[in-house]
């Protein structure tokens, strides 16, 4: 229990520091740290339930991404500001480094092992983020449709939907 608290606090502080390196806006540093701490807590909880590393990475990014999207909508900032640093603790940085390190050392088996691990972790994380992105986009699209329906056939108001989340495939109504 104490270990969980200590580790989550450490993840919070590490993500806070990483946000400074990435030049995140000062007022959002705390929020990015929160996303990171929550992500790491989810990671530890899943691991302690005897599930795989991949499941843990998935759950962790799911938690970090949901929080980041909520912050992004609440604070009207792009979701990247919270998400990039927030997923840092789980990201397969160590695996990709070890993969290349053993490649240079000539230990091919270990290198392959870590390459596969990199793809597994990064793939699970990307899937989690992708799912959360899509869900939030779905909610957003529906609210926009409803808003434009009220206004009749007038052109959409781009300010209401503009990029509070990753709404890249947002289709616009014709003028």
């Amino acid at each position: 229990m104490r270990e969980l608290a200590v580790q989550s606090a450490a993840a919070f502080l590490a993500v806070f520091g990483f946000s400074i390196i990435l030049d995140a806006p000062k007022k959002y540093l705390l929020y990015a740290g929160l996303a990171g701490g929550a992500g790491w807590l989810a990671y530890l909880l899943v691991l302690s339930a005897d599930m795989s590393l991949i499941a843990a990475a998935f759950a962790s990014s799911l938690a970090a991404a949901v929080l980041s999207h909520l912050f992004a909508r609440g604070l009207k900032a792009p979701v990247t500001v919270f998400l990039v640093a927030g997923i840092l603790p789980t990201v397969p940085g160590a695996s990709i480094y070890r993969c290349v390190y053993y490649l240079i050392q000539g230990t091919t088996e270990l290198s392959t092992y870590y390459l596969v691990q990199t793809f597994q972790i990064a793939g699970a994380m990307a899937m989690a983020i992708f799912i959360v992105d899509s869900l939030f986009r779905l909610v957003l699209t529906r609210s926009v449709w409803r808003a434009s329906g009220d206004k009749g056939s007038s052109a959409p108001d781009c300010s209401s939907i503009h990029d509070q989340t990753d709404d890249l495939q947002q289709k616009h109504l014709p003028h």
Partner: peptide
């Protein structure tokens, strides 16, 4: 060493690469 290289290591880049591909 692993903690030390964390600020440099491209884990986020790699994850975004897969995200972009999925997109």
């Amino acid at each position: 060493i692993i903690s030390g290289i964390m600020p440099l290591v491209p884990g986020v880049t790699f994850t975004s690469a897969i995200r972009d591909t999925l997109n």
